[in-house]
Design a protein around this nucleic acid. Structure first.
Lengths: 233, 233
DNA sequence: TCATGAAGGTGGTCGGACCACTACGTGCGA
DNA sequence: TCGCACGTAGTGGTCCGACCACCTTCATGA
């Protein structure tokens, strides 16, 4: 009775779609445990090998999570889970595409910073300050980079839009920033970066969304312009 | 005990990282053909099964492309290839996260429309008009949706940022819009949508970026507000 | 010269075997 | 009775070998 199977694509691809559909239709809830690989394979009438490939694919997409010895589970399906793969884009992009990514980041980062200025709590602001001072208190590039990332991440979180924060996180993935900032900082951009960070912080403390937007846009824009110039030469 | 044991994660996961690194380091160029699955597995000292899972994972991420009978190739690594998975996010998001996604789309769409107003060519503008009139000339929801998507896609392309266009494409994936718009249009929003689309087109034709930005923001914002209200009730 | 088809190579699928880890219940000892 | 160690079943992780489906290439012959 379960014949009439449309032979489109590979069996693995079909399995991926089936599982995705099950989740989209609500037949599988976030956090729920799936049947075993062996059972799932039997249900869809495919081999365990093919089913494993499908599961692996959905795992890297952040949809499923496999726990060795325990079972396969649907993730919480939160923004962070599903947008983790965004980092891959940033890591594998080169040349003009890097500028485009920074352009997207400038747009989102400025908006997020503006929102944060209106919504940030005193606790979150204190956290931002912590990373700001820590960033200025060291000369270790690695440490600076880490606090720089945390600085912007905290702001993005304060904006109250998890999806936006997750995208920005991907756009600022460690390897991405390391690649771009290495050259940028070598040109003595430390002082400028500090001033820009200070300006962002001032705008947040003053609860001034427009100033925050401008400061964030200028901050990312500086890097963007530098990179554009680099590619031109 | 163990000497130089990189035993972190599964072998498949390590294989994924290895291949990704090879591409990031430029040892594999876009479009280049990889060794066979069997050779790759031998090179990394793992089984073909595990290697296949790694390849499948990178395939769904849009990094690799497997051609049956021919070989495995690195994709062009363009924005569209890597951001195809973005649609999964839109398809599997529910509740409050849908509003967040629309918020992101509002920010990016308004920026893209503003850029398009400054950069769009007469040919592209004609294409936009084509979809606008086609959209208004039918009552078939499916057709309207298709032209609606094409309308915004053409504008995003005219903005000149492929990455941004690809993200917007994912945020407007067919199933995503179908889910949200079904209810939205049922409330007789057709007339309002037409007015908004007309306003966007006018701004584009007038090469007025600020007007275009405002019109696009209002357009997405309407849906956003409606969805927010839906979730509240 | 060009259509044809045979052959080899490649990804796709399958089934089974075994390993590594987890979860849970049993039973021992305190 | 309680607590903990241990054993055991079940699960995902890995490997192997075989075969199938498809593409590419090239020798063949009209």
């Amino acid at each position: 009775m379960d014949e009439a199977a449309p032979q489109k694509g590979t069996v693995t691809q079909r399995a991926i779609e089936r599982i995705k559909a099950m989740i989209a239709e609500g037949r599988l809830e976030p956090g729920e445990r799936l049947p075993t690989e062996r059972d799932l394979a039997a249900q869809l009438g495919i081999s365990r090998s093919s089913m494993r490939e499908a599961i692996r694919a959905l795992t890297v997409l952040g949809v499923l999570e496999a726990r060795h010895g325990s079972g396969i589970y649907v993730t919480a399906l939160e923004a962070g889970d599903l947008l983790e793969t965004f980092g891959v884009v940033a890591d594998l992009s080169r040349g003009p595409r890097l500028v485009e990514l920074l352009e997207v980041r400038r747009v989102l980062e400025s908006t997020a910073t503006a929102l944060a200025a209106a919504r940030i709590t005193p606790e979150q602001l204190a956290e931002v300050e912590k990373h700001l001072t820590a960033m200025n208190a060291t000369d270790d590039p690695e440490e600076i980079l880490a606090h720089d990332l945390a600085f912007h991440r905290e702001i993005a979180n304060a904006a109250g839009n998890e999806t936006m924060a997750a995208i920005l996180d991907g756009l600022s993935s460690r390897t991405f920033r390391a690649r771009v900032w290495r050259g940028y900082q070598e040109e003595g951009a430390f002082a400028r970066t500090r001033r820009e960070h200070a300006a962002i912080h001032r705008a947040l403390a003053a609860r001034d969304p427009e100033a925050a937007r401008a400061a964030a846009a200028a901050h990312v824009g500086e890097v963007e312009e530098w990179l554009r110039a680099q590619l031109g030469s």
